[in-house]
């Protein structure tokens, strides 16, 4: 067996969860072909030490990223969800930080892992992943208010790389804030009940100020403008796209005022760079 063949074989064996019986389709190969026994442990037991350690690390990494998702689906379903996700999406990055990046999209196509409130679960996963991305994304020097005021309709605008925009169908932002708060509190204060989540259209900006991640609800118009700018549209293109896509109620003056308010807010929060 060459080094490459041996490593393929061993990684294949390690990718089977330690409690594989619970996972349909999981297959285990014998470790005895390439590992030797010791006086105290046989080859399979020796491999299992690695398997337990690998899976514990991976499971913990995903669980740490999605405490609000766990609150929605429940602990037992969450554990099964993590294993199913890790089997479907083995890590393709050198850093554990990226391990969960495909989970929101995966959950969106696997409703049986989300339970009765699957759509809320998907929204929570999207929001918690946005938090991770915003936490350590780059930050650029923001444009000054004077510079923003001088921008023309065709000026290309950049938004902060740490800004994430989400349109949600449930008020999972209330839950995420509460769960993150609860996790940071001492155990004696962590018994507070979590907020109820309900179906509700929410446009949300996830952004960073002084190293901390914040959530800000936006109105639909502001969301659309910012979303278009994030897709590298010029200001004129973004406004046109917004006005063309119905419904946007209100007079031309209302729209101009809404645009000015959006730019003022984005400038004030340092989102335009």
């Amino acid at each position: 067996m060459t080094l490459l063949e041996l490593q393929r074989r061993m990684l294949g064996d390690l990718r089977v969860p330690p409690d594989a019986a619970a996972v349909p389709g999981a297959r285990e190969q014998g470790a005895r072909d390439y590992l030797s026994d010791s006086p105290r442990l046989n080859a399979q037991q020796r491999l299992d030490i690695y398997r337990r350690s690998c899976w514990a690390r991976l499971r913990e990494a995903v669980a740490e990223d999605f405490p609000a998702l766990r609150a929605i689906v429940g602990r037992q379903r969450f554990a099964a969800l993590i294993d199913a996700y890790l089997i479907a999406h083995p890590s393709r990055s050198w850093t554990l930080r990226n391990l969960s990046r495909s989970l929101p999209a995966w959950l969106a196509t696997n409703p049986h892992h989300g339970g009765k409130r699957w759509r809320a679960a998907v929204d929570a996963a999207r929001l918690e992943w946005a938090y991770i991305e915003s936490f350590d994304a780059a930050s650029r020097p923001p444009l000054s208010p004077e510079r923003i005021a001088s921008l023309g309709a065709d000026s290309p605008l950049c938004l902060q790389p740490h800004l994430r925009l989400l349109d949600l169908g449930w008020n999972v932002d209330d839950l995420v804030v509460a769960v993150h708060h609860k996790e940071g509190e001492s155990p004696d204060r962590s018994g507070k009940t979590l907020p109820t989540i309900r179906p509700r259209k929410i446009y949300l900006a996830v952004h960073r100020v002084d190293g901390l991640v914040y959530y800000r609800r936006l109105d639909k118009f502001a969301f659309r403008i910012l979303d278009a700018l994030q897709r590298n549209r010029t200001l004129a293109e973004a406004v046109n796209a917004c006005l063309e896509s119905p419904p946007h109620a209100g007079s031309a003056e209302d729209r101009i005022r809404a645009l000015q308010q959006t730019l003022a807010l984005a400038g004030q929060l340092g989102w335009i760079c």
Binding site: L14, Y50, S53, P90, S91, R92, L96
Partner: peptide, 17 residues
């Protein structure tokens, strides 16, 4: 040690032959 093969990562410090 080794820890990845064909672009898939174990995130563990695996022993070498």
């Amino acid at each position: 040690c080794w820890g990845s093969v064909d672009g898939t990562y174990s995130h563990d410090l695996l022993p070498l032959p």
